[in-house]
Design a protein around this nucleic acid. Structure first.
Lengths: 328, 328
DNA sequence: CTCCCTTTAGGAACCGGTTCCAAATTTACT
DNA sequence: AGTAAATTTGGAACCGGTTCCTAAAGGGAG
């Protein structure tokens, strides 16, 4: 039988309020402090979280909505969030939506019902329903990965990364390029990375670029890459994510093409695996863990009523490895 | 301003208890049902979870303690757990311990304090402190990945997987083997897989086996594998996890060895990436997602007071791919 | 039209904390 | 020692639901 604060009070011979004050650092004399401490240690009393939250009308829980658990980006962002929240005395509650947009919306409302202090939404696309939910909810929200003017957002610098990586391969002499992108519903990955790429390309009018669209899964990308390699002969496959690049790598292998001698490949993300495969992948690395920490930092500030920039941009870095050939 | 049940009652012109009964399916006349429904729809009233849990003295939340988020095994197990819990109307609360055993213990107590209905512990090692915590806690617990006689456990069939995979490579003619294992503190991965392996090896007394120990990280494994390849010349690197195999693959590449022509490699896990790299890795695949579902199923049964087997064993499969050479 | 039984509705107590307020005690100072 | 001020303590109300108990209303049978 777990004890309540009333039990403790009775055993210690004091009032409930005194025990509560003892626990929350109010004014209690040393003598009674001793008495209460003794009883609490003996009984192993633990306050009931619900009763506390009921009175406080809020929790110290930050809800994180994540489209999928099995992705490098998501995992590492979560790790960063968790790390910082723990430091700040908050708890992280994860809602996995399994890429179901409707569940994303549901989760927002469910968090509200549970009096969650704040929400971090690892977003892929922002629909009308999202905006409606975010507007109606009375708790602070931060978007990670996508930007929206109506909310606080933390994004990776997709445009610049796209621009820089394109410039890098252009400097390596590549002019015949296949761009393997994703749906434009995903503003960050589908639009911004591509815009960064095309903006860099514009400086080299002699370029021949073919655009393709793939899903996010390695196997989808492999299928598309296989088709590309049959149709035309680019010197490089410019892939919008590392997973797509992994699929492209596999496709090249299947076609008997050597990377980077026969064809070069680049990706975006900086997943751990890209470093240890052969050939190691040249990629634009994003700092997911740090981004998660930043997001957590911002949400804590918002919860505490402090001011936060509407838009935070997380850094990236071009990691030069083995998958890009220098053309003469 | 969010409304309370008392507000709804007042607006609808009924008593709190009537509204509560309406919400929880008690006897309410059609006329008052209509009235209350109307008010609730208009106000967008949502019951306060804390007040509910306070009275009910329990939650419908299952706590899952996970050593790390960025692992294929952990992610997929979580996905399986989440899927089944959602079906059953439970919520999953994840506690990430970042491989800190102390935090694992803390999390158990923290879950108890929060009146979590049940705990799923994705375990790596079970210490005295674990047993003590598990014994003291009044809520059902299921261990996943490790076995302990004092609790309910769900494990992968590591012994048989080790035995079968060893038998497989033995049949392929390999006799000079380097075994790349992990710490024996991890009973499942460090001991059982290895025991399965050695048991199979005993049938072939002419074998020459060298045992090595690595960490779980790809880079650690790469370092150890590099050392092995300098020291001796096995025909196969038998790795206790896919990540270790990935490190071994990289080491082989660095050494200029072709896989599988110059050296064969196998692992355990069945991570998605092992299928798309070149060469694709032969491995003992575990069904993490299904294991998670099983674990969730069992914890729900325990929470409902139903009977559950002390030990559940999840299946595995040997996936034959390209990384093992057949020796004549 | 009663009488009795079944529904429906309201009131109060309760879950386990926190907080406000007033009373009691201690401390400090003249 | 006496009084004002500061500190400590207890009691009661409150947070927002659920549930028990009782009273009132509705319905059916005689």
């Amino acid at each position: 039988m777990t004890k309540t604060i009333a039990d403790i009070a009775k055993i210690a011979g004091v009032a409930k309020s005194t025990v509560s004050r003892y626990l929350n650092g109010g004014s209690v004399s040393d003598a009674t402090k001793k008495k209460i401490e003794l009883v609490i240690n003996e009984t192993g009393y633990i306050p009931n979280t619900f009763a506390q939250s009921l009175k406080a009308k809020k929790t110290n829980i930050i809800g994180t909505i994540v489209p999928r658990l099995d992705s490098y980006a998501a995992s590492n962002t979560l790790i960063g969030i968790d790390e910082h929240l723990r430091d700040q005395g908050f708890q992280m509650l994860i809602a996995n939506t399994n890429q179901d947009l409707e569940r994303e919306i549901e989760s927002i409302y469910s968090f509200e019902r549970q009096k969650i202090a704040g929400i971090i939404l690892l977003a892929t696309v922002i629909t009308e329903a999202h905006l409606e939910a975010l507007a109606s909810v009375q708790i602070p929200v931060i978007l990670v990965g996508q930007q929206d003017e109506h909310t606080y957002s933390l994004i990776h610098d997709d445009f610049s990364a796209g621009y820089d990586l394109a410039t890098y391969i252009l400097n390596k002499g590549h002019r015949k390029i296949a761009y393997l992108g994703v749906t434009e519903a995903d503003i960050s990955v589908g639009v911004k990375r591509k815009t960064g790429f095309t903006t860099a390309i514009e400086n080299y009018p002699e370029c021949e670029v073919h655009y393709y669209e793939s899903g996010f899964k390695i196997k989808d990308a492999m299928g598309v890459a296989l088709k590309i390699l049959s149709e035309c002969k680019p010197t490089i496959l410019f892939c919008a994510t590392d997973n797509i690049a992994l699929g492209a790598l596999k496709a090249a292998y299947i076609k008997g093409l050597k990377v980077p001698e026969d064809i070069s490949i680049v990706g975006f993300g900086g997943y751990e695996i890209t470093e240890v495969i052969h050939p190691a992948l040249t990629t634009a690395k994003f700092y997911y863990k740090e981004a998660g920490q930043l997001a957590a930092q911002n949400i804590v500030r918002l919860v505490n009523g402090e001011k936060v920039e509407k838009l935070t941009i997380s850094k990236y870095e071009i990691i030069e490895r083995e998958s890009v050939d220098k053309l003469n």
